Structure formats: structure tokens, C-alpha cells
Amino acid sequence: MRVYLPATAADLAATTISPRTAHAATPALAAVFPEEDAEGLEVSASLCAADASLMLLAEPGAQHLADRRIVIAADVADAEVREIPATGEVLPGTVEVTSPVEWDAVAALLVDEAEAEADVRAARTGDEDAFEHAADADLLWYDVSERAALAEELSASNR
């Protein structure tokens, strides 16, 4: 199953990606968007993960991390994914990845471009307009082989 894991720059330097809540094109998501094809559902899941990445950046102790949303697209075994029922704050397509994800399972890294940093920085502190602007920004696609260079770039940009 392709999952979209919300992440931060710190995750790019980790040896594996820790288990966490993620998003996927599940039957529950398809039921909400019956007019969408598989690709459209994947985009919706990645956008939900991008919003969740911003929420990770808003957590206490995250202020030293780069002001960019990061989504890790990975293919994991169905047995390592548990769908979380949509209720209240939980969106359709929300899943729990129950095992660490190895980097060789990663299909792509999706990362904000540098121009989005101001909006992400403001959104981290609760600015709703900035959150909407950040949500409208496209994420850039990176191959997993670019992970180390990207981690270094994001580390350097936040010094």
C-alpha cells in the first residue's frame, strides 16, 4: 500500500522512518470522493499528509526544524497498516503505520520549496491565513537518493 507519511527535516536524517499516523487512498477516502480516480485519491492523501506535516512543525520543541512541510511517499505491506475510522478530527484515509519504514521502501520525498517558508513559519504559530497559503503551495518531488543532500540543505537553511 502506498502511504503518505507526514514528516519534518529531522526525519530525513533518521536511519528509518518511525511508525506514525499517515494517509492513504483507502476505500473510505474513495467513498468521500467517488468522482476521483486512483491518482486523484493519491493526491488527496498526500495533501492531508502535508497538512499533518505542518501540525508536526507546530508541536512544542519543533521550533528548531526547517520551515518546510515534508511528505514521505512509501510502499508498505498491508499488514503494517491499520486504517483509522474517520470520526471528528480523523479524516477519511487516515492510517496508522505500525512498523518502521525502511528507506528502500520510499518512492519519493515531497517537500515545500523555499518560497513557502514564510507561510509555513507563520502557520506554525496558528496563523490561519498562512496555513491556507501554505496548503495552496505545491510540494516539490525528490527522489529518495536525494535525501542526504536535502537533509543537509534543510539543516543549513535553519541555522
Rank of each mutant, 00 (worst) to 15 (best):
D136S: 12
A116V: 04
P92R: 00
T94Y: 08
L47Y: 13
A58P: 08
D75M: 15
E35F: 12
V144N: 00
Q63P: 05
A149I: 07
L57Q: 02
A135N: 00
A149C: 04
A24S: 05
R124D: 12
M55C: 10
R20H: 14
D138S: 12
A49V: 06
I84W: 03
A137Y: 11
A10C: 00
Q63N: 09
I17K: 03
A22T: 12
V120G: 00
L54K: 00
A107Y: 02
D37E: 13
A149L: 14
D78A: 15
A38F: 13
I70L: 14
E152K: 03
S145P: 02
T26Q: 03
S157Y: 10
A73I: 00
A66C: 01
V3L: 13
A50F: 04
S44D: 03
P60C: 07
A149Q: 11
E35Q: 10
A28L: 12
E35T: 09
A105Q: 15
S155N: 11
E128N: 07
R2E: 07
A77D: 13
P60D: 03
S145M: 07
V43F: 09
T8A: 11
D78N: 13
R2D: 13
L150G: 01
P100G: 04
A74H: 05
E36Q: 10
V97G: 05
A31G: 11
G88A: 14
D75E: 13
D129M: 15
L150K: 10
R68H: 10
